[in-house]
Design a protein around this nucleic acid. Structure first.
Length: 240
DNA sequence: TCATTAAATTGTT
DNA sequence: AACAATTTAATGA
């Protein structure tokens, strides 16, 4: 069976180089023997904008992570409309739920920009669960942190003020536990952020400007620098 | 390495 | 949605 032949991990895959391995946060938590096993299985691939990393309904082949770039996680409803849940910046790993149960993927993952995606074969994933305490800690911490993230996302959806929506969505993308590869600067264009948040680019531009005026972030070409993450999380705006 | 040009991104209406 | 201004990336000498 060739369930994900269109995936970049099949078309343009290769062994990860040293830089890419350094961008995989959980490798450092493994013992040497476990790490050797993991690295032997790991592959990376280049995803071009619009490429699907995985599709709803396809059998699980890998546990995925973002080494570079930006992905979006979405699902389709009965009317064929797609609904975006979240963006996945560098350092983010996802799909452990379906990998655990070996069930079909429940989300579509698409590249928003040119990205480098890593994949750990599902059999290696299970081997690590059976052998590595460090790996288990990482996955458990990951599940817990993601639960908090989804609860926060429900709050965000109920907010009407666009400035707050942008601030909270940004805070989620800067989450250092889920996305340790992001660091101080998140590489994202205002257009991409608008797409994730579900607002127009103009409105996002305006929201970012007011966040910058508050010294919460700094706008840079092709990216954003966070100056005060806790302010992003709790920011409240007043109507004009 | 530098200068020129094309492309991408941002700011504004 | 359109346009101008700005920044980066690509090209070639």
């Amino acid at each position: 069976m060739a369930p994900t032949l269109d995936s970049p991990l099949h078309k343009r895959r290769r062994a990860p180089d040293a830089d890419e391995l350094a961008g995989i946060p959980w490798l450092a938590l493994l013992l040497p023997a476990e790490r050797a096993q993991a690295e032997a299985g790991l592959i990376v691939g280049d995803a071009l904008p619009g490429d699907y990393v995985c599709r709803i309904g396809r059998p699980v082949t890998y546990w995925f992570g973002v080494v570079q770039g930006l992905l979006k996680m979405s699902s389709d409803n009965a009317q064929g409309m797609s609904m975006t849940f979240t963006g996945v910046p560098p350092g983010g790993w996802f799909g452990e739920g379906t990998a655990l149960k070996r069930e079909p993927y429940r989300y579509n993952i698409q590249a928003l920009r040119k990205s480098v995606v890593a994949g750990l074969p599902v059999d290696t994933f299970h081997w690590l669960l059976d052998h590595s305490i460090g790996f288990n800690r990482f996955v458990m911490n990951q599940l817990n942190e993601r639960l908090g993230q989804f609860i926060a996302a429900r709050e965000i959806d109920r907010m009407t003020n666009p400035d707050v929506r942008v601030a909270r969505s940004l805070a989620a993308l800067f989450n250092p536990v889920l996305y340790p590869g992001v660091g101080e600067i998140l590489r994202i264009t205002q257009q991409e952020l608008a797409y994730l948040v579900g607002l127009s680019r103009q409105r996002v531009n305006e929201a970012l400007a007011s966040l910058q005026a508050q010294e919460t972030i700094r706008i840079e070409y092709g990216g954003l620098r966070v100056l005060d993450l806790s302010a992003l999380r709790s920011s409240i705006f007043h109507e004009k």
